[in-house]
Design a binder for these strands. Structure first.
Lengths: 337, 337
DNA sequence: CTGTTAGCGCCTTCAC
DNA sequence: GTGAAGGCGCTAACAG
């Protein structure tokens, strides 16, 4: 690699490596003139400290990892953006991993991170994740850990979510007030915490308004977009069709539009849909999509701020076992057409 | 940190650290029984090698960095996804940085990476980037470097782009064939290589079909979404309005739709637009947006494959100074309405 | 086949 | 105010 290192700087300056190191770290024991000389030389030779030597010595990496289930998703992209903004501000580095909704991959990724590679982990668990011993290992090793969105309740650490129950409730009420009487719920996976919360809100809203609901109004979708489109198309144009839909995640709302398009039919005229979604252009669709968008960027930056505080200040306590609910933004604007 | 390390394993096994190390690395010098013992113990104690010690020793990090101008962009997200898929396959790690279109940030990020933190860099330059000494430094230090999308021509390394000139041409021809006679070009920045190429295609298509074009048909947009929307709204409903628009980047197409929406007007009825865009749902808009989408995921994975090949095989030559054009996918489907 | 030693680059305790 | 020495955890040369 033939990099310029402290030893080399020391030779050039006719000083010892330890003096150079101290000067660069602005130690009080070094005279100002020496500091100036060292810093000037370091700049001239474009000296950059070797991060691995430093990490090895200091037992910390100034790096955090974020693990998400899938990348092509506006929500996760925005969360990462929020995290990155803060880590950059603090001079931290950000490793990104995607599990592709696969627990085995998740286990592997987590194991890579267990020997000090990162100072903290931020993650949203894969929808398949049931056995959580790998997450318990992380926690027990004392690696600061924050969950968001798809959280793992069992691990007693801080979790960031949005007020999913409340929003599921409000979304359903909105549809009811628009006159819907037969509201279907598009669900991605029973395992996902957010899906369950939103679903509870949906159920309770129906109960409160005295509306019935039937088992088959809960549409179990899969990870396959194609299959979802087929499934939803059958439902949209079937005999027992809904007059309203609550899509529990963005991809299912999109699938619904595609279902309408690919079957060469228009969306049913009297039809209303609300979706949890971070699509910036949902309002541009026709009929426009009412969205409940999670404060993704803010969730990312708040998590990162919390982490940075913990990592950069001495003697911070472990994260509390609490759930922080960030309020979602509900866009109930009417479609202009 | 109190981690289990090789020394500790060695004590437990009553072996020397070097034997343990060799056993774990499956060295031919170690007997099978010893290997088995060591591996079993390592597994039992959940041993994970310290990545920094290894990187320090080996002078390589098994990490690559990707630097992009902005995250909230479908194209870049998809590229990162493509890269990540391959790096994960090879057991590499991926650091992600965003410059927010700021050259100073770009310089800072690059400088962090210069002392071995990463084995290679994949980047798309910020739109402001004119002085390129920081990029030359990277190149001269011998860090494998690949540019994509917004490339830096001056550095003699491998670059990945899509066939922008050709697509600018085809898009314009498409509009002409649809009967447009007054086609405006929405441009983001004169500094961006892809913008220039697409613009050349546009110009040549107009020339070839003997259509005039005027200076003020080239709409210079900015990084500010608000301002872009205002600017485009003025143009869309002005006296000298276009009958067709070629948007050189996705965000400008979206701005156009917003401009139409916010002015509470419909898009002009006879109006056609083509945009370079990786929005999956462009076809769901009304009027649906004709898109030229870059093979983002493939660009990411191809770049990563090239890098992995170079990094994992011995004695690979430096990257050739060549531009690899990945064909875009043009969706000229007619809007179903 | 296994053990001893040295060094990757950095920081820090201890000496002067 | 500065220098010398040791060690973070790992691997590879050198011994045996």
């Amino acid at each position: 690699m033939a990099e310029v290192n402290i030893k080399y700087l020391a030779e050039k300056l006719k000083l010892s490596p330890s003096t150079v190191s101290r000067a660069l770290n602005d130690s009080y024991e070094i005279s100002q003139p020496t500091k100036d000389r060292v810093i000037a030389m370091a700049k001239e030779l474009n000296y950059q400290p070797n991060p691995f030597a430093r990490s090895l010595r200091e037992q910390k990496s100034k790096t955090i990892a974020v693990i998400i289930p899938e990348r092509i998703n506006n929500f996760f992209s925005q969360v990462i953006d929020g995290i990155e903004e803060i880590t950059q501000e603090y001079g931290y580095h950000l490793l990104v991993y995607s599990t592709h909704e696969n627990v085995e991959t998740e286990r592997k990724i987590v194991s890579y991170l267990l020997n000090g590679r990162v100072d903290a982990i931020v993650m949203s668990v894969s929808s398949q994740t049931k056995k959580i011993d790998h997450l318990e290992t992380v926690y027990s090793k004392g690696v600061p850990l924050i969950f968001f969105d798809r959280i793992c309740q069992e691990i007693p650490t801080t979790k960031f979510i949005s007020n999913d129950y409340e929003n599921g409730f409000k979304a359903t009420v909105h549809l009811i007030e628009k006159g819907c009487k037969k509201i279907f719920f598009l669900m991605l996976s029973k395992e996902i915490s957010i899906g369950r919360e939103r679903f509870r809100g949906y159920q309770d809203a129906l109960k409160k308004y005295g509306l019935p609901y039937e088992e088959n109004w809960i549409v179990q979708c899969s990870q396959s977009e194609e299959e979802n489109i087929k499934l939803i198309a059958r439902i949209l144009y079937g005999l027992d069709r809904p007059d309203g839909i609550l899509a529990s995640v963005e991809k299912l709302a999109i699938a619904t539009y595609h279902a309408a398009r690919e079957t060469r039919l228009e969306m049913p005229k009297d039809f209303k849909m609300v979706s949890f979604s971070n699509m910036k252009i949902a309002g541009l669709l026709k009929p426009s999509l009412t969205t409940i968008s999670q404060p993704a960027f803010e969730i990312g930056s708040e998590m990162a701020k919390l982490l940075m505080k913990k990592l950069t200040k001495p003697n911070q306590p472990a994260f509390e076992n609490k759930v922080i609910q960030m309020p979602s933004q509900i866009d109930f604007r009417e479609s202009s057409n």
